[in-house]
Design a protein around this nucleic acid. Sequence first.
DNA 1: CTGAAAGCGCTTACAG
DNA 2: CTGAAAGCGCTTACAG
Lengths: 345, 345
Amino acid sequence: MPVTINDVAAAAGVSIKTVSRVLNHEPNVRTKTRDRVMTAVNALHYRPNPSARSLATARSLLIALFIDNPSTAYVTEFQLGAIARCREAGFHLTVEPIESGAEKLEEVVRPMITNLRVDGVILTPPVSDDAVVMQVLKQTGTPFVRIAPESEPQRAPEVHMDDARAAYEMTRHLIELGHSDIAFIMGHPQHGAARLRHEGFRQAMADAGLEVRPDRVKQGYFSFKSGFECAEALLADDARPSAIFASNDDMALGVLAMAHRRGLNVPDDLSIAGFDDTPAASVVWPQISTVRQPIFDMGAAAADLIITGAARRALNGAPATSQLLDFRVLPRESTAPPAKAANPS
Amino acid sequence: MPVTINDVAAAAGVSIKTVSRVLNHEPNVRTKTRDRVMTAVNALHYRPNPSARSLATARSLLIALFIDNPSTAYVTEFQLGAIARCREAGFHLTVEPIESGAEKLEEVVRPMITNLRVDGVILTPPVSDDAVVMQVLKQTGTPFVRIAPESEPQRAPEVHMDDARAAYEMTRHLIELGHSDIAFIMGHPQHGAARLRHEGFRQAMADAGLEVRPDRVKQGYFSFKSGFECAEALLADDARPSAIFASNDDMALGVLAMAHRRGLNVPDDLSIAGFDDTPAASVVWPQISTVRQPIFDMGAAAADLIITGAARRALNGAPATSQLLDFRVLPRESTAPPAKAANPS
DNA sequence: CTGAAAGCGCTTACAG
DNA sequence: CTGAAAGCGCTTACAG
């Protein structure tokens, strides 16, 4: 019932090899022959069988995306970017949730890779730094790309953005509004981006000649709850900061909730800045000023590194490339000049 | 380099057919033979080549998920459920974003299906009701499952939940708290669930002998903005309702933002209820009372209908099954008994 | 510029 | 209970 390469060859009056040549854009086919083949292909609505092709070429045209990330917005957006690039190249994306750092991770990951025989794997944080996963990939000869890895950048091609620079610019935004007493809530200590954002904040404060009081910096964990609790400490008495920069939006939302509970008016009594541009950041009142990461583009870039073969070459010893993508600071309603009363100086 | 069925057969001293029998759990193999084969399989770390298997069986072990949904939480959660079921059965999921109702949709969808040769497709709303997509699927003989379709339930197996019943119970929750003047914000008129939730609300009010004033029911569109605007109208003067039931969380968040702007205390001055249990609903203050859909389970059930062959049988004329899954009403901080002052009666 | 043969690694009838 | 042969639909050398 389904039409095969033999049907096309018969209809065009050529051998199947010639049909194969035309379909794969190989040289050495006369224009006239090519036209005859394409006419037959279109008339019969022929599509090559992907399994047969994979079997013969040992390529699957499949890319796996390893995820272990609670942010659905991040995951979806990244996926969409990767899929868009895949589609251009005739690839498909299969999503594989895994538990990074889990007990028997190797026993889960190894069959996954050997069963599927994907042409490449994309590792998103925190899988990007999972030693077990990377070891299995190397052993099985599977090309891979890392997104925003924390360490060993040469280990594989990577895609990332400049977290330090972005935090620097968000801090500049607050300083330019007139804030000088700015508190900072750090992210999860295990997460590479957390350190970089913290560094960017400190650099901006130092460059502006502003002091960072130790009690103005709190350890958060990228969760709503941790933001809520850090804000409780920071807003305990009247000598509070005029602005809080939480190093992700979930924590910024926690700060906002605590500010509401304390009866503080945002942004008049307190400015709040976040990072990530999660959907929730723009469905609260006031909307949270934040930093948008190019997540869609990162997904596309990652897929591209596999499709073009850069990931495979890196596996074979070529130097690993690194793609740095742009961010955007998005000032919204939650940041404004400080009220004088709030900051007696 | 990679180990094949021939290597296993040689190592076990049997024919490849016997290896195939063991791996596919076919009967008529002596226990002793089976053991010898499995020993060889494990020693060699053998995994069948999926492309070869697909070519021989004409099955791809691949399920496509068609999505066109702005809610990242919904998409991710659904995916995770579908993937979990796929993994048990050795299937994989490929995600295909499409634009339901787009101009040249058929030209996009047809090659997608014929290129990939998936064993089945899962249609999530609003693709569940896309006539063009379903036509292509029928023509190509591709089994499919519909999630929460609005019309023609017999057309294919479907998975859904009882939206009317859930809205009924959320309304009961408000009534039992003591509310009688309850406003309702409808969802997008094109969306099947919107109508059902509205019906559930009205039924609960009627069963409790409560009146629904026409000016207490507003047309929303499932967006934050529409909730914000409907709330503006509902809260325009002091004769406001004591509770607002928005038929999804994004709109409920809009109501909350407007309540904050108006200086209303939630829940003391106004109770707010939503629907969906989006992540944002629990990272605002106060947390929104809502209804949790079994989205993960719906994903798993949908994959199951394809894996077990129910979708294919339906394509061949068997009656389409329908799976109804359970919901849960989640009372949280945003709903409480009405303050007497707010409801002078 | 074009084609006949062999092979990719499995499974499906068919024998015995 | 087990196996030899053929075939799934392509592509990869190899000829000419």
